[in-house]
Amino acid sequence: VTTYKLVINGKTLKGETTTKAVDAETAEKAFKQYANDNGVDAVWTYDDATKTFTVTEMV
């Protein structure tokens, strides 16, 4: 189990959160659900070296 981080650069929601998951795909599903629940529709990137997902909402 690995800890993954999500950085949110949204128009109305900004911040960071983490989740523990067995792999990046599982973490991504959890983070996308979190973003969807909070109304963030954005572009996703992932950095495997830092285990960090970044979501940037387009203006």
Rank of each mutant, 00 (worst) to 15 (best):
D37F: 15
E16I: 09
D37C: 14
D48Q: 08
T17N: 05
G39S: 07
K51V: 02
A21K: 01
A35Y: 15
A42C: 12
V40E: 05
N38E: 10
A24V: 13
N36T: 14
T3P: 02
D48N: 07
G15H: 15
A42I: 08
V43H: 10
N36A: 15
K51Y: 06
T45K: 07
G15Y: 15
V1P: 07
V1F: 12
L6A: 03
E16M: 08
T12D: 12
E25L: 10
Y34L: 07
W44R: 00
K20N: 12
E28T: 03
G15R: 13
A30K: 10
Y4G: 02
A42L: 13
T54S: 05
A49E: 10
D37M: 15
E57M: 05
F31L: 04
M58V: 12
D47L: 02
N38V: 15
T17Q: 09
V7E: 03
E16Q: 08
Y46Q: 00
A27E: 00
A35P: 02
V1R: 05
D37P: 07
A27P: 01
T52G: 00
T19R: 04
V43E: 09
T3G: 02
A30S: 08
A24C: 13
K20D: 11
A27G: 00
K29T: 06
Y4H: 01
A42W: 15
D37G: 08
T54P: 00
A21S: 04
I8Y: 13
V55F: 05
W44T: 01
E25K: 11
T2R: 08
A42H: 08
T17W: 15
T2C: 13
A49I: 09
A42R: 05
A30W: 13
A21H: 03
L13K: 05
T2P: 07
K14Q: 14
E25A: 13
Y4S: 01
D47Y: 02
F31G: 00
A49W: 07
D23L: 03
D37H: 10
V59F: 12
E16L: 06
L13P: 04
N9G: 03
W44N: 00
K20Q: 12
D37V: 13
T12A: 09
K32L: 10
W44L: 07
D47M: 02
V40N: 05
D47K: 01
K11V: 15
A49T: 12
D48S: 10
E25V: 10
G15W: 15
T17I: 12
K20Y: 11
D41S: 10
T54I: 06
E16R: 04
T50P: 00
E28P: 00
Y46H: 00
K14C: 15
G10K: 08
T12M: 08
K32V: 07
T2L: 10
V59R: 05
K11R: 12
Q33A: 10
K5C: 08
E25R: 08
W44H: 00
T18W: 14
Y46D: 00
D41P: 09
L6I: 03
A30I: 15
E25F: 08
V7S: 03
L6K: 00
W44I: 04
M58P: 12
E57G: 06
T52L: 02
A35H: 09
V59N: 11
N36R: 14
K29I: 09
A21R: 02
A42Q: 09
N9L: 13
T2E: 12
K20H: 11
T54C: 07
T56S: 07
D23S: 09
K5A: 03
A30G: 03
N38L: 15
D48L: 04
D47W: 01
A24Y: 14
F31P: 00
T45H: 10
G39W: 15
N38R: 13
T50A: 05
A27T: 00
V59I: 11
V43Q: 10
M58N: 09
G15M: 14
T18N: 04
T56M: 07
T26F: 03
K14E: 07
Q33H: 07
D37I: 14
A30D: 06
T52E: 03
E28I: 08
E57R: 04
V59K: 08
D48H: 08
T26N: 06
V7K: 06
K32C: 05
T56P: 02
Y46F: 04
E57Q: 06
K5N: 05
D23W: 02
G39V: 14
A21W: 03
F53I: 03
T50L: 06
T18G: 02
T17V: 10
K5T: 13
G10M: 15
A35L: 15
W44D: 00
V59M: 10
K14G: 08
T18S: 09
Y4V: 02
A30Q: 09
N9W: 11
E28K: 11
V7F: 05
A35K: 04
Y34D: 02
A27D: 01
V7M: 04
T3D: 06
N9H: 10
E57P: 05
T3Q: 07
N36Q: 14
V22R: 10
V22D: 05
A49G: 08
D41K: 09
Q33G: 05
E28G: 07
T54K: 03
L6R: 00
F53K: 00
A49L: 11
